[in-house]
Amino acid sequence: MKHVAEVEGHAETRVRMPTRRALAKQQTRAKVLAAARELFSTQGYEGATIRDIAAAAGMSTGAVFANFADKSELFREIMTSDFDAVLVAMSDAAVRGRTVDDALLKAFSAGYAFYRGQMPLVRAALGLSWSCEDGQALRALPTMQDTIELFAEQLALGVERGELSQECEIKLRSQMLFDNYLANYPQAVFGGWSLEALQARSRDQIRVILAGARRG
């Protein structure tokens, strides 16, 4: 709202019209995104067509294309907002951890809790991330690297608190934590694992990965 307060007098009347139009455009995009999310979840990425998404949003395919270049842009937009939200949830959870193990487990759990009930969408994202063209855009999202950074920060805090040794190879270890964090999603997707099962597995994985780094 800060920028609104700065606009005064006649300047305000100038900006009002485009803002309203932008708002309408925003609402159209939100409607398309909600319909797309629903269809990706029920039909998979390949199964959901722009035509179906348009119909579900109550608009023409032309109106959808006026807002999004193609299906992959739609999917990327959904993933981007989800990834941002899940990273915030994971960071908030990690802060509440008392030890490095606890902080990492809380972060993992926050991620799994976020996607609970959204496994078809996760499955579509995992598949797409491995494909040549569409995957490029997904893996270029900075949130992927930021999540590894979050794990690295927790390890650094563990070193500061004296829980982990100075030579604990933070970079490699945080990458491995991320590998294992991701590897549990297929378990949830294909094995129908519960949140509790994922947490129990995560706790063990974190222990194994940190075992060689403890001070002792």
Binding site: T42, G44, Y45, E46, G47, L128, W130, C132, V189
Partner: peptide, 16 residues
């Protein structure tokens, strides 16, 4: 490699 990556992607390429 392309064959192997197709294999990975196909496993997730879910349809009802």
């Amino acid at each position: 490699t392309p064959l192997f990556l197709a294999h990975i992607a196909a496993a997730y390429n879910w349809r009802p």
